[in-house]
Simulated scan of single mutants.
Amino acid sequence: MPKAGPASVEFRNVSMRYGAVTAVDNVSFSIEAGKLVTLLGPSGCGKTTTLRMIAGLEIASEGQILIGGKDVTKLSAADRDVSMVFQSYALFPHMSVLENAAYGPTVKGLSKETARDMALEKLALVGLKGFEKRFPSELSGGQQQRVAVARALVLEPQVLLFDEPLSNLDAKLRRRVREEIRELQQNLNLTVAYVTHDQEEALAVSDRIIVMSNARIAQEGAPRELYEQPVDAFVADFIGDANLLDTTIGSVSGEMATVTLGQATLSLPARGLAAGPARIAIRPESLLIDGAEAGAGLPGTVRKCTYLGNHQDIMVATALGELFVVRYGAHAMLEPGTPVRLGFANSGVTLIPPA
């Protein structure tokens, strides 16, 4: 069976309506062939509906969907060269691992022998050699996940879709399985659309992230770009933690803005904003305790200090409100009531439009 190779995916002004409810509202984006792009957002933002429209499980109300440059907007799931790994894995409990993996080629009418060979190859690829005769109930969550991936890969689809694939796994296993998915995607040069609400997972696996909010795209870009340069308060707060403060831009000179925060004066990229009201998003690890010269920075008082192994979470009461600080490394614990001064790191302090 000739391999089609990975294909690009493109949405052009796509909307999806269920009666009066708009689940996806005029969304346009593209996924390059051989890249992993994550649709990230809170429940109900439209990310799973978008994924189901790529699969052909939902037919768009408006707009165009192209896979490999071919218009598939009105094609059914069966007529698209796409496979999906569901959140529940959807394995057949009465079938062995091998039978589950061989299901696709068997349904397509390929001989038992061919289907078996294709399934064995993909099971070996996901590290399940020797598990062929077991049943899903005899496997761990991580192993079941791999069977679901092998079954999706067996027909070598042009696009592979993942819907919250790690939500049933515990935290340690999650990290391992997401690394395996990323490795497979890169080694096999697969085009992958991946849905999650877990921002750490999205940062770890993606070439690009599309953040969705209220049925629309809030921002898209590389993981680092979204973390370091969020376009607004929603993205800043959804991707990682952020302290969001109201501020005023005193002046703008070229690309830099001068901002006063309490007793601290900062020079930050203006990002197209003019003098006047603005907001500032500060990552917790970008607030440095006693990282300011005497008299500079923000004075505050420790309200709470929590030990979390490789770092401490510290709440600091200041004149601007309570700020969340993350301090890495082996430091002595700070008692509540301890006076501190907060300085600012060179990155992770970003101006965003006012609310």
Rank of each mutant, 00 (worst) to 15 (best):
V325L: 05
S30P: 00
I249C: 00
R216P: 02
C305I: 01
T301V: 15
T306E: 14
G69H: 05
L288Q: 10
V326E: 12
Y328S: 11
V126A: 01
G142T: 00
F162A: 03
C45M: 09
G254A: 04
R327D: 12
L128V: 01
G348F: 00
F238Y: 03
V252D: 05
P339N: 12
T350A: 12
Y328E: 13
I209H: 06
L320A: 02
T106K: 15
L173P: 05
I31R: 03
G109H: 10
Q87D: 09
L287M: 08
Q229K: 15
V149F: 00
A275P: 04
L128Q: 02
A78D: 14
A296V: 07
L323T: 02
S83A: 13
V177S: 11
G348S: 09
R271Y: 04
G348N: 08
Q199W: 08
L169N: 01
T318H: 10
A275N: 01
T318Q: 05
T318R: 11
P336L: 12
A242E: 01
A274S: 15
G262D: 07
A33S: 13
T265S: 13
D79L: 08
G68H: 08
L188A: 03
V192T: 11
G348W: 06
L308I: 08
D79P: 08
G337Q: 11
L323I: 02
Q185S: 02
L110V: 12
G297F: 04
Q229S: 15
Y103R: 10
L98D: 08
P6I: 04
M256G: 10
L123C: 12
S213P: 00
E225I: 03
L125S: 00
V302I: 14
G44S: 11
N243H: 06
L125C: 09
E121Y: 10
Y89L: 05
E99F: 06
A20D: 14
A23S: 06
V340K: 08
R178W: 03
P277H: 01
T301H: 04
A332W: 10
I65T: 04
E255Q: 15
K112N: 10
S137K: 15
A275S: 13
I65R: 04
A115Q: 06
G272A: 13
L57E: 06
L184M: 05
V85K: 10
K3N: 15
V9P: 03
A355L: 13
L320H: 10
L351T: 02
R176I: 07
G221P: 09
L288D: 03
I67M: 04
E132Y: 00
F11E: 05
P42S: 11
